[in-house]
C-alpha cells in the first residue's frame, strides 16, 4: 500500500547516484534486494516506479529484484534456519527467543547505465 512512497525514495536515491558528468544518462536496470517479509508487493512497486520515473533517466529502466529469504536465529539454543511460512518458533527448543537475521531488506544495490553511443 505504501509502494508509491518506496518508489519515490528509490527514484530519488537512483537519480542522486548518477554521476553529473554523464550526458543524457539512460538507466537500463535497477538492482534491488527485497526481503520476503518486507511489505512490498513487487508488481505494485513496478507500477509505481513506472509512474514516478517518467521523464527521468530512469524512465525505461527495469527493476531487477533479488528476493532475500527470511532467516532467523534462536538465541536460546543457537540454531539458525530459514523460515518459509509465518511460523517463527524454533523447531528444536520451541520456546526459544528468536531474532531475525534477514528478510526485511528494501535496498537498492546498483544501476546499470546504457553505454554511450
Amino acid at each position: 500500500m505504501h509502494e508509491m512512497g518506496i518508489a519515490e525514495q528509490l527514484v530519488k536515491i537512483a537519480l542522486d547516484a548518477i554521476p553529473k558528468d554523464i550526458k543524457n544518462p539512460r538507466v537500463e536496470t535497477v538492482h534491488l534486494k527485497i526481503g520476503k517479509l518486507a511489505s512490498v508487493v513487487e508488481h505494485s512497486l513496478t507500477f509505481c516506479f513506472e509512474i514516478i520515473s517518467k521523464d527521468t533517466p530512469l524512465e525505461k529502466a527495469r527493476l531487477e529484484i533479488d528476493s532475500v529469504p527470511v532467516k532467523v536465529h534462536c538465541k536460546s539454543c543457537d540454531h539458525s534456519w530459514e523460515v518459509t511460512g509465518p511460523v517463527f518458533q524454533c523447531p528444536f527448543c520451541e520456546d526459544g527467543d528468536v531474532e531475525m537475521i534477514s528478510g526485511r531488506e528494501i535496498e537498492i544495490i546498483s544501476l546499470e547505465l546504457e553505454d554511450a553511443p
Partner: peptide, 9 residues
C-alpha cells in the same frame, strides 16, 4: 556501466 549504490530505500 554499473553504478554501485548499496543503500536502504
Amino acid at each position: 556501466m554499473e553504478i554501485k549504490i548499496q543503500k536502504k530505500v
